[in-house]
Each structure stands twice: as C-alpha cells, then as structure tokens.
C-alpha cells in the first residue's frame, strides 16, 4: 500500500507541474479572448480594460494561477469565457465521451492483440509471422489522420453509419434499447479507427515479449514434460510475459489519447479533442489548461492502473514481502 501511496503522491505532483507548465505556455501567448473586440470601434478601450479586469486577465501569473487553484478547489476548474460558465461541467461531459471511445478501443485492441501476438510468436519465422509483420509495419505507417478520413469516407459512401456526432437527432425520444443501438452505430467507426491505430504496436510487443519468454529453459522443460502447446502458450508463457505487457498498457494509453484527439476531431465526436482545438483557436485559457490537465489525468490514471496491476501480478515488486 505504501508503494501505491507513493505513486499517488507522485501523480499529484505531476498534475500540479503540468498545470503550471500549461499556464506558462498560455502566458507566453500574445493576445487573449478579447482581442477581436478591439477591432470593433463601438467598444472603447476603457470597456475592454474593465472586462479584462473582471475576468482577472490583468493580474500577474502567480495571482492568476492562485485564482485558478481556488476554483479547482471549488470543483469549477476555472472559467471559460467563450462558453460563459465554469470549465468543470463542460470538461467532465467531454471527458466522459472520450473515455467512451478510448476504453472500448483499448479493451478490444488488447483482446485482439494478445492471441495475434501469441500466434505470431509461436510461428516465429514462418509465413504467418512474416505476413503479420508486414501487415503491422504497413498499418503502423498509415497516419491516424488518413485512417480517420477513410472511415469518414466509408460512412459517407455506404450510408450505413452516421457521419459524425455521438447521437442522432431526436435521441431523447428513443426507447432505452434504441438509444444503445444509436450510440453504438455512432461509435463503431471511430472505435475501429482507434483500434487500427493501436493494434500494430500492441501485436508487435506481445510477439516480442512472448518470443523472449519462449526461449527460457522452463518452457523447454514444460514442453519436455508433455504439457500441451496451447496451454503452454496461453497459461505459462503469457503469465511470464505479463510483466512488460502490463507496463505497456500504461504507455499505450498515451498514444491512444493522441490518436483519439485526431479521430474525434475529424469524425466530430464530442470528446476532449474538438474542445481543446476550439479553445486553442479562441484563446480560451482556462479551457485549454483544463483539457490538457484532464488528458494528463487520464494518462496518469492509466499508468497508476498499470502499477496496481503489476503490483498484483508480480510479487517481486511488493517490498517487504520478497
């Protein structure tokens, strides 16, 4: 527990660091949300100054940061000038949508990658392995932007899938079952695109770590004892290879979030990605800081999850019990 507690403290420090860092970047930015108002001759210089004062934009950086921290304490996470409301509720809804996309994609990707990787490792150097390697390399070279656009093309050309958004018009009037069907039909293509982005990396790693394990003497011994090959692969070898794979789970979430940003924006899924993009263009400071910090939260959450799993799976890292 102390191990996990230490990791948690570390995570909080990282989050604080990231929020300060994003504040610094925002401070460097020339201009703010009200810049376009200056072009309007009906708005006087004095009004502008008053508006800036009201939103606290005239304060120094530490003051701004302290104000933001206070509002984080209240659960508001700052104030979005463009949306004219606290950032918190805005962010949580979008964050939920991003999770709705990334969690099934991660789960599916692992479910597919583990058997595929094991299969390739068991046939190392034979044609299925080579074909798999060629396929993963090719898929790795397809940019996520192109994948998203092709998925959109499929939606537009076939008409089987909606071309964007998360729910259809009139969603509220649908029955419970139709609601589920509606959301699933909307997220099918984005999840597929995300899956194709993550899959090649995972398959390669599963294959590599399994090949390493399969060379170990204990596998040879097990084989000599007549343990069936599929049990050997899926139980003994996979368990021994679990360690690096669990660490990879934490890392794969980082790549997934970046890909998700692109795919969400291209396929107009109302997640964190489009929100961040709009906020950057509008120079809505607190919203950018909020979205960036939120993405870090996901990332840290992912690696904490990996740590906890590792803690449960590997007795060697449990201090005091070794």
């Amino acid at each position: 527990m102390r191990y996990l507690g230490r990791r948690l403290g570390h995570a909080v420090l990282l989050l604080a660091g990231v929020s300060i860092l994003s504040f610094l970047f925002a401070e460097l930015a020339p201009g703010d949300v009200f810049d376009e108002m200056r072009l309007d001759p009906r708005i006087s210089e004095a009004t502008l100054r008053a508006v800036r004062e009201r939103y606290g934009l005239d304060q120094s950086l530490p003051q701004k940061y302290l104000r933001w921290l206070q509002s984080v304490g209240r659960g508001e996470l700052g104030f979005s000038v463009v949306h004219n409301g606290p950032v918190g509720p805005l962010l949580w809804r979008r964050a939920r949508n991003t999770l709705l996309l990334t969690v099934p994609a991660t789960a599916l990707a692992w479910l597919i990658a583990i058997p595929l990787g094991i299969w390739a490792a068991a046939r190392k150097g034979q044609w299925p392995d080579r074909a798999g390697a060629a396929a993963t390399t090719t898929l790795l070279s397809v940019p996520d932007i192109l994948l998203a656009l092709v998925c959109l093309l499929i939606a537009v050309r076939t008409g089987y899938f909606p071309t964007g958004g998360m729910v259809s018009l009139g969603f509220d009037e649908l029955g419970a079952w139709d609601k589920v069907k509606d959301v699933v039909s909307h997220f099918f293509l984005p999840v597929t695109a995300l899956l194709l982005v993550t899959l090649p990396v995972l398959v390669r790693h599963v294959r590599a770590s399994l090949i390493e394990v399969l060379q170990a003497p204990f596998i040879q011994a097990a084989r000599a004892l007549g343990i069936p090959e599929h049990r050997l692969l899926f139980r003994d070898a996979l368990r021994a290879a679990a360690n690096p794979l669990i660490s990879l789970l934490g890392l794969s979430i980082a790549a997934l979030l970046s890909a998700s940003l692109v795919i969400e924006t291209v396929m107009s899924w109302p997640g964190l990605g489009p929100l961040l993009l709009e906020a950057v263009v509008a120079r809505d400071l607190h919203l950018v800081v909020g979205a960036v910090t939120c993405s870090t939260l996901f990332l840290i959450g992912g690696s904490l999850l990996a740590d906890a799993l590792l803690f449960a799976a590997d007795p060697r890292i449990r201090p005091g019990r070794a």
């Binding site: 990282l14 660091g17 990231v18 860092l21 994003s22 970047f25 925002a26 401070e27 460097l28 930015a29 020339p30 201009g31 980082a254 790549a255 979030l257 970046s258 940003l261 692109v262 961040l276 993009l277 950057v280 263009v281 120079r283 950018v288 979205a291 960036v292 993405s295 870090t296 996901f298 990332l299 840290i300």
Partner: peptide, 22 residues
Amino acid sequence: AELFLALPWLYLLFAVRMSLPL
C-alpha cells in the same frame, strides 16, 4: 523530462501551439 512525458504528445503540441500567434 518527466513533466513533458506526462502529457499526451498531441495535447502538449496544441498547448505549446497556443503560446504562439494564430
């Protein structure tokens, strides 16, 4: 370095991009 790696790459890219004129 840890701080920079704690951010998903594209989110960081957009955050840094914000510090420059549009």
